[in-house]
Amino acid sequence: MAPSTPTEFIEKWLAIPKRLSRQTLDRLAKKWMGFQTVAVGMLVPLIALALLLRAQPILTVRPLGELLFGTTWHPIKQAFGFYPFIMGTLWVTITSMIIAVPPSLMVAIYLAEYAPQRVRALIKPLIDLLAGIPSVVYGVWGVLTVVPLIRNYVAPTIDRWLSFVPLFQSDNPTGYSVLAGGVVLAVMVFPIIIAVAEEVIHAVPRDLREASLAMGATRWQTMKYVTLRKAVAGVIAAIGLGFSRAFGETMAVMMVVGNVPKVPSSILDSAYPLTALIANNYGEMMSVPLYDAALLGAALFLMVVVLIFNIASRLTLVRLVQHS
């Protein structure tokens, strides 16, 4: 009996699931969901492979050492040295970690061990809020607040008192600097380090803390000698996650570091991170040979570094969770 009206036609199709046995539906669903799951599970290698394929043209004609350690970047002349950009990324990232790690750990310890329930319930959503702010807004904040602050106050002060330290010597008057990028990134990674570190500190068994407290140790002594000792791997993983987040951040950083392709020698110098290199040049590189391969090679490098830190951190955390 052929369906005569559109309604009947739709009804006929809608009826199909009802005719399939419930077990068959269950099996079909399992297959379909399983396929999607496997596909997404394969996404990481897939992305790496795609980037590798696209970067292939330059990887085959230039030795890796030349790409990573070459100091000249001049696509028109076919010079593709990533070194200044890699150093730019490292300078900014390490600066941000130096700024972010101590306070983040202190906040994590405070939340896990000292803060009363009410205070915790108030602070944690606010820190989550910090994690939700778009990176371009961080960039705007950096341009409006951090850069002028460095230009007008921090740099002159440092110049006056600390200019004998090479790390602080610079003739960059703009404020757009490694330090600005470091400050903005530090604020961006606060929530990551705090959340993960708090979780691993919290996961240390209660018995252990009680054992120490019961001997007359203060909470801080207990934290220092027992809890942190037990949680140290997880805390390092938290820092690793923060590091990889900072390493791959693009927008906020490129808005405040100045983007001068030169290896920085001071935190007040400008820098040009890898991410900014990709973002600034992608799209206009099609006409120059090897240019897009070079940029995708940069993306691949970025991804590999981030993957290493991420996987190591995640594996550590998974192991910790299984043990506790």
Binding site: P205, L208, E210, A211, S212, A214, M215, Y225, V226, R229
Partner: peptide, 11 residues
């Protein structure tokens, strides 16, 4: 002093 039900050696 205090002795807990489950032994809790410090790390």
């Amino acid at each position: 002093g205090f002795l807990a039900p489950k032994p809790s050696p410090l790390p």
